[in-house]
Amino acid sequence: MHELSIVMSIIEIANGEATKANAVKIDEIELEMGLLSGIEMSAFDFAWQEAVKSTVLENAERIIIRPGGKAVCLECNNSFDLDSLYSPCPVCKSHFINIIQGKELRVKSVTVE
């Protein structure tokens, strides 16, 4: 359950931002978690529920943006969408690809009062 470590890191970042802004709680947090980032959402939600109790994020509204996978084929230069790390290039079927989107794991913004 590495999702718990991920949630703990988010809490740490949120805490730092709340402290800097002299806020005691965060109203909203915007996260970017790519579809290829290796996060299992049900595990993430479960970890979130448990971990945010008594923290600045306890009642925060969560907005999760999930960028889809995108890659560039290194054989034929074709850009394409992919839904797994092992999707081949649809044009030439090559696995020599470079993933350019979908692995994001970021805290984009927090909203405080």
Binding site: S9, I13, E17, L105, V107, S109, V110
Partner: peptide, 15 residues
């Protein structure tokens, strides 16, 4: 009264 703070930080930043 709300302030939106752009954080733009990698969650695994500390690690």
């Amino acid at each position: 009264q709300k302030t939106v703070i752009d954080v733009e930080r990698d969650i695994l930043h500390q690690n």
